[in-house]
């Protein structure tokens, strides 16, 4: 299952459509890093609103995405984690430490714009 990556100015937006397999997640990770390089993006939003399960693999992939993109000088924010999913994640011990999170797409964009301003 392909994850569409949308370019919106300096920001890339990846929206998870439904349940993703490990292969899909890895594909997404590679794709995002490549596109950040290609478009010289300053920020990435990963929208996981549609994800109903976030297990250790998905969580680790999100962390890797965030860290690799930071190495490219850009910021990542994960948006749309559902309340039940967040509860299950902390039970599992998955807290996405060091990764920025926001309520939804709108909040994620506001977060990135704020970040860019502080850098400029």
């Amino acid at each position: 299952m392909e994850v569409p990556i949308l370019k919106q100015g300096e920001v890339l937006i990846a929206t998870f459509q439904a349940a993703l397999s490990d292969a899909d997640l890895e594909h997404l990770r590679r794709g995002l890093v490549q596109q950040v390089v290609r478009f010289r993006s300053r920020g990435v939003i990963v929208d996981v609103t549609a994800m109903d399960v976030m297990d250790s693999f998905a969580s680790r992939t999100l962390r890797e995405i965030s860290h690799m993109i930071r190495l490219r000088g850009a910021e990542t924010v994960i948006v749309g984690i559902q309340p039940e999913v967040a509860f299950a994640m902390v039970q599992l011990g998955l807290t996405l430490e060091g990764v920025a999170t926001a309520l939804d797409l709108e909040e994620g964009l506001a977060y990135l714009i704020e970040k860019f301003k502080n850098i400029d």
């Binding site: 948006v79 984690i81 309340p83 967040a86 509860f87 994640m89 902390v90 039970q91 807290t95 996405l96 999170t101 926001a102 309520l103 909040e107 977060y111």
Partner: peptide
């Protein structure tokens, strides 16, 4: 601690 962590995952 878990409540605090889960809230952060929602951006709060």
């Amino acid at each position: 601690v878990q409540t605090v962590e889960a809230s952060r995952l929602l951006g709060a």
